[in-house]
Design a protein around this nucleic acid. Structure first.
Length: 171
DNA sequence: CCCTGATTCGC
DNA sequence: GCGAATCAGG
């Protein structure tokens, strides 16, 4: 992914709105939060209002990795399966009571079309955002490609990170 | 352990 | 310019 004008503008907007680097990375897709932070700094946007004054970081040892242990462990490959159900239901009950709201034109967001997967079709790489009444026949999960840093697609990752009062129904 | 932003430096 | 690795902290 390259930093197109559109992506840079979205980055600026979301950063100004106060979203964290990881949240923005999920929105943009295809980039890590480190990439976002790096870009923010190169754009000289790091200030972002009255945030906690940066304590001025110390310099990193320029060389000599030392015999300490910079070795990075191999992929942990954790399993999310055991908590998928609980997480999904928690989100469901938390988000469902929110009244449907009109999408404001200023939001300028793309609402993804749900693949309407059932629980057995979910994998580590599918969005686990639940839609509908869990007890109804229509209940399903978004199922779109999950972001790199979470169980939701870029769109639902954003919803999940917003306060419940700001969430909207999707798919 | 989860997360946050900040910094360095090889590419 | 880019971003992984790393750091310092909540």
């Amino acid at each position: 992914m390259n930093w197109t004008d559109e992506r840079v503008e979205l980055l600026k907007k979301l950063w100004a709105e106060g979203l964290s680097a990881s949240q923005i990375a999920a929105q943009l897709g295809g980039v890590s939060r480190n990439a976002v932070i790096g870009k923010v700094h190169r754009l000289k946007l790091s200030g972002r209002g009255r945030t906690t004054a940066a304590p001025a970081r110390q310099k990193k040892a320029s060389s000599a990795p030392a015999a300490s242990k910079p070795v990075r462990a191999a992929a942990p490959a954790r399993s999310a399966a055991p908590t998928i159900g609980a997480t999904a239901l928690q989100v469901q009950f938390d988000a469902e009571p929110v009244a449907r709201q009109q999408l404001r034109s200023s939001d300028n967001v793309v609402v993804p079309i749900s693949r309407r997967l059932d629980l057995t079709q979910l994998t580590e790489r599918t969005c686990k955002w639940p839609n509908g009444d869990p007890l109804s026949e229509d209940f399903h999960f978004c199922g779109n490609e999950a972001g790199e840093s979470g169980p939701y697609c870029a769109y639902h990752a954003r919803l999940a990170f917003q306060p419940a009062s700001e969430r909207r129904r999707a798919c």
